[in-house]
Each structure stands twice: as C-alpha cells, then as structure tokens.
C-alpha cells in the first residue's frame, strides 16, 4: 500500500495503476489507504474507512460561496484593523486599543519577535490565505484556465491553515475582558463586532472547501488549456 505514482516509474508516464487510471485513485492523506474515488453526491462525503478522514465533500455552488465569504473576510479584516477594538475606562482615565495595537504591544528587545508572530497569526496569515484562495478560485468558477502558479498558491493556503489563528484571538478577547472586568469599565469598539462576524465566516468557509474538488478542477483546466 504505497503512493500510487510509484517508486519505479516516472510520474508523468505512470497513468495506470493496476489497470485503473490514476486520476480516479485517491490515497488517504493521513493513513495512506488507497481507494478508487467515486464522486459523492452534492452534500455527501467520502470518508476513509480506516481512519475516518474526510476525503471528498462536494458542496453546492461551493466555489461561488467561498469567493463571496472570502471577499467579506478581506473587507472585515481591513476595516477591523483601523477601528478601535476595545475601549477601557477607569478613574477618569481612558484608553482604546485596535487590533494592531494588540499585536505591537510587545515592544522591548526579543519581545518584538513575539509582536511579529502575533501580528502574523491574527492578521497577516489569515489575509494572505484569503487572497490566495480568491486567486485560485476566481478563474475556476468563471470557467477560465487558472492563473499562473495557481497550484503553488493553493498548496500554500493548505500549509498555512493551522497558523491562521483569528478564531483563537477571539476567545482570547473574551478571556481578557473577564480578567479586567473588576479593574475597569470595558466597552466594545466597532472592530470587535467585525472581528466576531469574521470568525464565524472563517469557520463556515473552511467547511465549504473541498480540496480534492479544487485540485481536480485545477487539473482539468490545465489539460484543456
């Protein structure tokens, strides 16, 4: 049970594996069990029998939905960056912080590294992912050949996925609010609500994405072109 493209043959030439065309085979990315893929009906899922990883999960008009939701994410992130996020008042003193303020709150010495990492995880990486997803999917949905390097772009979005932590930042906000609740009066800025909506969208969006279908459409378009 090994990867279908074979150890001995050139992957370009190895189009058959045991008499079955390579495009119709799918190896579970987690446990390497090999299957002959049947496209499940829309709304159904193909699941690996051995380790229960979801292999294929097509959704109705998924491409269009993902593009709509990702566009919303970009608008919300951009807006949430500049509006105040949380405000605080105590004993006549007040302060407000935006998301960028939070990211840049680690100022001195090696803490700057942490500031960069936090900024990357809550703003930069989610934003890069959404832009790349748009870049890959817009031509696919419009029935055009994919843009240059679409494959690299899509692979990058998959690799960056665990490092996009916007939803964890949202939980962090909730914890921070409770921590200072008896120290001062806390108010929500407009950016807070934008961020809350954004987190919900990100979760829905990941649910719509079926990587197998995307790869398949990228490949089909390339052959026609």
């Amino acid at each position: 049970m090994s990867v279908a493209t074979g150890d001995e043959t050139d992957p370009q030439r190895a189009t058959l594996f045991g008499g079955i065309p390579l495009e119709s085979l799918i190896a579970c990315p987690q446990c390497d069990a090999l299957y002959v893929a049947h496209m499940p009906a829309v709304g159904e899922r193909a699941v690996c029998e051995r380790c229960h990883t979801v292999l294929i999960a097509p959704k109705r008009k998924a491409g269009l939905k993902i593009i709509a939701l990702t566009s919303a994410v970009i608008i919300l992130v951009a807006a949430a960056l500049f509006f105040p996020f949380l405000t605080i008042r105590a004993a006549g003193f007040g302060n407000e912080a935006s998301i960028l303020d939070s990211a840049s709150s680690f100022e001195s010495g090696p803490m700057v590294l942490l500031a960069l990492a936090v900024a990357a995880m809550i703003v930069v990486i989610p934003l890069i992912r959404t832009l790349l997803i748009l870049y890959v999917l817009i031509p696919v949905v419009a029935d055009r050949p994919p843009y240059a390097h679409a494959k690299h772009a899509f692979r990058l979005t998959q690799e960056l996925k665990p490092w996009a932590m916007a939803e964890i930042f949202a939980i962090g906000c909730a914890v921070a609010l409770v921590k200072v609740a008896d120290l001062a009066h806390i108010g929500f800025g407009p950016a807070f609500w934008m961020f809350a909506v954004l987190v919900v969208i990100v979760i829905f969006n990941d649910n719509y994405m079926c990587t197998w279908s995307v790869w398949k459409s990228l490949e089909l378009d390339q052959k026609e072109a």
């Binding site: 936090v118 995880m121 906000c173």
Partner: peptide, 24 residues
C-alpha cells in the same frame, strides 16, 4: 494544540488595552 496560544493573545490584548497611566 493551536488553542494554547489563547494565553499569549490575552497578554497581548491586556497589555495594549490596560495603559491608564498611574491608575493601572
């Protein structure tokens, strides 16, 4: 595993928000 980062984000939010000169 990723959810452990929540504490780091809490520190980031608190130290940018709670800057009330001498009060706190």
């Amino acid at each position: 595993g990723r959810w452990s980062m929540v504490d780091v984000f809490v520190v980031a939010i608190l130290s940018s928000l709670v800057q009330l000169s001498v009060v706190a």
